[in-house]
Simulated assay, not measured.
Amino acid sequence: MGAVFVPQLPPERLRSVAQAADQAGLDELWLWEDCFLESGITAAVAALAWTERLTVGVGLLPVPLRNVAITAMELATLHRLFPGRARVGVGHGVQDWMGQVGARVESPMALLREHLTALRALLSGERVTTQGRYVRLDGVALDWPPAHRPELLAGATGDRTLRLTGEVADGTILTGGTTVEQVRRARGLIDEGRAKAGRTEYHQVVVYLHAATGPDAAARLEAERVRWGYDTMAGHGVAGGAEAVAEAVRTWAEAGVDTVVLQPTPDDPDPEGFVAFVAQEVTPLVRN
Results as ranks from 00 to 15, higher is better:
residue 197 A to Y: 05
residue 95 Q to T: 05
residue 268 D to W: 01
residue 211 A to T: 09
residue 36 F to E: 01
residue 3 A to Y: 04
residue 131 Q to K: 11
residue 218 A to F: 06
residue 227 R to H: 13
residue 214 G to V: 06
residue 185 R to K: 13
residue 234 A to Q: 14
residue 244 A to P: 11
residue 186 A to G: 06
residue 260 V to F: 10
residue 287 R to F: 02
residue 280 Q to I: 01
residue 121 A to F: 06
residue 275 V to K: 12
residue 230 Y to F: 15
residue 287 R to Y: 03
residue 257 V to I: 12
residue 73 M to D: 13
residue 113 R to C: 01
residue 81 L to W: 13
residue 175 T to A: 15
residue 274 F to E: 00
residue 108 P to W: 09
residue 161 T to D: 08
residue 227 R to A: 11
residue 20 A to V: 00
residue 10 P to C: 06
residue 112 L to S: 06
residue 266 P to K: 02
residue 90 V to A: 08
residue 86 A to P: 09
residue 6 V to C: 10
residue 79 H to D: 12
residue 257 V to A: 09
residue 200 T to Q: 14
residue 20 A to P: 10
residue 184 R to Q: 13
residue 276 A to H: 04
residue 10 P to S: 06
residue 194 R to D: 08
residue 12 E to H: 14
residue 150 P to Q: 07
residue 185 R to G: 07
residue 56 V to F: 11
residue 129 T to M: 12
residue 86 A to W: 06
residue 148 H to D: 14
residue 165 T to N: 14
residue 263 Q to L: 12
residue 220 R to A: 01
residue 258 D to S: 10
residue 245 V to T: 12
residue 38 E to R: 14
residue 169 A to Q: 04
residue 32 W to G: 09
residue 156 A to T: 05
residue 229 G to N: 10
residue 190 I to L: 15
residue 287 R to N: 12
residue 131 Q to I: 04
residue 180 V to N: 12
residue 40 G to C: 00
residue 112 L to W: 05
residue 192 E to M: 04
residue 134 Y to F: 11
residue 271 P to A: 04
residue 181 E to A: 13
residue 142 L to V: 05
residue 16 S to C: 04
residue 18 A to F: 07
residue 223 A to S: 10
residue 75 L to D: 02
residue 90 V to L: 11
residue 86 A to S: 13
residue 162 L to P: 03
residue 111 L to I: 02
residue 112 L to R: 08
residue 269 P to M: 02
residue 104 R to A: 12
residue 83 P to E: 04
residue 127 R to I: 01
residue 93 G to W: 00
residue 64 P to V: 00
residue 68 V to I: 08
residue 247 E to A: 15
residue 262 L to K: 04
residue 49 A to H: 11
residue 170 D to T: 04
residue 233 M to F: 12
residue 180 V to W: 09
residue 100 Q to V: 00
residue 138 D to Q: 14
residue 105 V to K: 09
residue 136 R to I: 02
residue 183 V to H: 10
residue 119 L to G: 06
residue 117 T to D: 13
residue 256 G to C: 07
residue 134 Y to Q: 02
residue 67 N to E: 11
residue 153 L to K: 03
residue 229 G to H: 09
residue 200 T to D: 15
residue 64 P to Y: 03
residue 242 A to G: 03
residue 123 L to N: 03
residue 77 T to W: 15
residue 158 G to T: 11
residue 282 V to I: 08
residue 178 T to S: 11
residue 76 A to N: 05
residue 173 I to G: 01
residue 180 V to P: 14
residue 253 A to E: 15
residue 45 V to H: 12
residue 130 T to S: 10
residue 230 Y to W: 15
residue 228 W to A: 10
residue 267 D to V: 02
residue 46 A to F: 14
residue 198 G to M: 03
residue 119 L to Q: 03
residue 42 T to W: 14
residue 39 S to T: 00
residue 81 L to Y: 08
residue 252 W to L: 06
residue 285 L to E: 08
residue 192 E to L: 10
residue 258 D to T: 05
residue 169 A to S: 08
residue 126 E to Y: 04
residue 214 G to S: 02
residue 214 G to I: 05
residue 103 A to D: 08
residue 190 I to F: 09
residue 99 G to L: 07
